[in-house]
C-alpha cells in the first residue's frame, strides 16, 4: 500500500507539472532534435536576428526606438530590452511554479509565511532546473520553444549580460546527462521546493515530513524508470548543492547589474524574491 501511495503521489505531481508548465522536457527535446511537426524555432544568432526574433515575442516594458539610435545605441538598447522581456517571462514562470507548489499535497496547509519563504528560496532553483531541458551545448530555446538563441550569441553580449547564461549552460549540460523525464522532474522540483533548511522558516517539521514522502516517491520513481542507472537518486540530490551556488552567483550578478546599469529596472516580483535572499 505504501508503494501504491508513492506512485499515486508521483502521478499527481506529474499531472500538476503538465498542467502548469507549458513547455515540457519531452516537447523541448522534440523541438531541439527536429522531431516535431511544428515549425523549427527561429534562430537568434546576432543582433539583426535578435531584433527580428524580438518581434515574435512579447516585449512589454520598452517600446522600439532603434530607428533613432546609433548602431552602438541599438545594441545597448536591444540588450536591455531583451532582458526586460526575459524578466517578464521569469515572472510568469514564478507564477507557474507557485501554482505547482500549491498543488503539492500539504503545501497549502503550511504556515503562510513558510510558504512564502519556500517559494522565495526555491523558485530560482526550480527555474534553473526547468530551463535545463531547453538547453544543449549550442544554445537554448526561449519563448515557449518558438526561438532558439545560440550560446555564442549570448557570450557575445556586452558585460555583464554575457555572464548571465554561461553558468546555466554548464550546469544544464551536466544535469541533462542524468536523462530525467518529465515525471522525474516533477518529483525533483517538489523536493527542491520542500527544503526544510531555508533561512527564516518558522515550522520546519511539517515541511521535512512532506519532503521525506516526496523523496521516497522520487527514489521509487527513479528505480522503476531508470533501472540500469546506478545511484541516480544520489546523483540527482547532489545537484541541489550546485543549484544553491548557481542561485547565489545569479543573484549577486543581478544585484550588481542593478547598481551599474542606469537603464536597468528589475521586475517587482523579482525584486521581492531577490531582496535579502543570500
Amino acid at each position: 500500500p505504501e508503494s501504491a501511495d508513492l506512485r499515486a503521489l508521483a502521478r499527481h505531481l506529474y499531472e500538476s507539472y503538465l498542467k502548469y508548465f507549458p513547455l515540457t522536457k519531452a516537447k523541448a527535446r522534440a523541438i531541439l532534435s527536429g522531431k516535431t511537426s511544428d515549425n523549427a524555432p527561429f534562430v537568434i544568432h546576432d543582433m539583426k536576428s535578435l531584433v527580428e526574433g524580438e518581434q515574435m515575442i512579447n516585449c512589454r516594458y520598452m517600446p522600439l526606438h532603434e530607428h533613432r539610435r546609433s548602431d552602438l545605441g541599438i545594441m545597448h538598447e536591444v540588450e536591455l530590452r531583451f532582458f526586460h522581456s526575459y524578466q517578464s517571462r521569469s515572472a510568469e514562470a514564478i507564477s507557474e511554479v507557485t501554482e505547482f507548489a500549491k498543488s503539492i499535497p500539504g503545501f497549502i496547509n503550511l504556515d503562510l509565511n513558510d510558504q512564502v519563504t519556500l517559494l522565495k528560496y526555491g523558485v530560482i532553483e526550480v527555474m534553473i532546473i526547468m530551463i535545463s531541458p531547453l538547453m544543449n551545448k549550442d544554445g537554448t530555446l526561449i519563448s515557449y520553444g518558438q526561438i532558439f538563441m545560440t550560446r555564442e550569441f549570448l557570450k557575445s553580449l556586452r558585460k555583464p549580460f554575457c555572464e548571465m547564461m554561461e553558468p546555466k549552460f554548464e550546469f544544464s549540460i551536466k544535469f541533462n546527462m542524468l536523462e530525467l523525464d518529465d515525471c522525474d522532474m516533477a518529483l525533483f522540483l517538489a523536493v527542491i521546493i520542500l527544503s526544510g533548511d531555508r533561512p527564516g522558516l518558522l515550522d520546519v517539521k511539517p515541511i521535512e515530513d512532506l519532503q521525506e514522502t516526496v523523496l521516497h516517491s522520487l527514489e521509487l520513481q527513479l528505480k522503476i524508470n531508470h533501472p540500469d542507472s546506478l545511484q541516480l537518486f544520489a546523483k540527482v540530490l547532489q545537484k541541489m548543492t550546485d543549484l544553491r551556488q548557481l542561485v547565489t552567483d545569479h543573484v549577486q550578478l543581478i544585484q550588481m547589474m542593478k547598481e551599474t546599469e542606469a537603464d536597468w529596472s528589475l521586475h517587482p516580483l523579482l525584486q521581492e524574491i531577490m531582496r535579502d535572499l543570500y
Partner: peptide, 21 residues
Amino acid sequence: LKEKHKILHRLLQNSSSPVDL
C-alpha cells in the same frame, strides 16, 4: 515576511489560475 512579499503572497492566495503580472 508576507508583508515584504506582497506579489508572492497574492500568488499564493489566488485560488485558481496564475494571476496577471
